[in-house]
């Protein structure tokens, strides 16, 4: 175990104390409308926004937007368009053919169109990645301005896993041509609830 020798080497090598700066979050606030900024940024990273005023609208909207989806998992209370028995699933392999996953977000971030989701929002961590298409339900009032506000909130979450998701998976590794849909979902739609 090299822990002690490494720590010893660091103690001998490290510079004298350099002070930790205060982060004055107010200096980074630009007072633009949070919802509009969120929508603009989400669209710029390849995501899509659907406005809803009640959760009852979700199931019919999904039927219209994803007519070919067969295997659907809903992890959102009150949205019952799921088609597979989630109680039986214990491995990612069983989710291989998942067409659509519907999950709820704790909050969104205006400056980059990201949503924060954690273990509480799904029953298996693969769900937001293995599904071909992902729908995220987000209440508009839960959008924060930037990553300073977002990170300040993260210590409220003690789950084992959480992720900021900003748009669908993507790659530009072939001559810098953007392809939406890399190893994760091919599309990401946020249902923004007023």
């Amino acid at each position: 175990m090299s822990r002690d020798p490494i720590i010893e080497k660091i103690r001998n090598a490290k510079p004298p104390d350099s002070s930790l700066p205060e982060i004055d979050v107010s200096r980074f606030s630009d007072e633009s409308g949070k919802a509009e900024t969120f929508i603009r940024n989400l669209e710029s990273v390849g995501g899509r926004v659907v406005h809803i005023s009640s959760r009852r609208e979700i199931s019919p909207q999904i039927a219209a937007l994803f007519p070919d989806a067969k295997e659907i998992v809903s992890c959102v209370e009150g949205v019952d368009c799921g088609t597979i028995d989630t109680g039986k699933i214990s491995s990612a392999k069983e989710l291989e053919k998942l067409d659509l996953a519907i999950i709820e977000a704790h909050f969104g971030v205006a400056e980059n169109g990201a949503v924060w989701v954690t273990d509480k929002n799904f029953f298996h961590r693969s769900i937001p990645f293995i599904a071909a298409h992902v729908v995220v339900v987000l209440q508009q009032e839960k959008i924060v301005e930037n990553m300073h506000e977002a990170c300040a909130r993260l210590n409220e979450f003690h789950e084992g896993y959480g992720v900021f998701i900003s748009g669908p998976s993507k790659t530009a590794d072939i001559e810098q041509s953007l392809v939406i849909g890399a190893q994760g979902p091919l599309s990401l739609t946020v249902f923004l609830e007023y």
């Binding site: 940024n41 710029s44 990273v45 971030v109 400056e111 980059n112 169109g113 990201a114 961590r125 990553m147 993260l154 789950e159 084992g160 896993y161 959480g162 992720v163 900021f164 998701i165 900003s166 748009g167 669908p168 998976s169 993507k170 530009a172 994760g184």
Partner: peptide, 16 residues
């Protein structure tokens, strides 16, 4: 890359 954030920023804290 000029993106506002990467598509995924994953926090692994506890094993599943």
């Amino acid at each position: 890359t000029g993106q506002p954030i990467t598509a995924y920023t994953s926090f692994y804290r506890k094993p599943k």
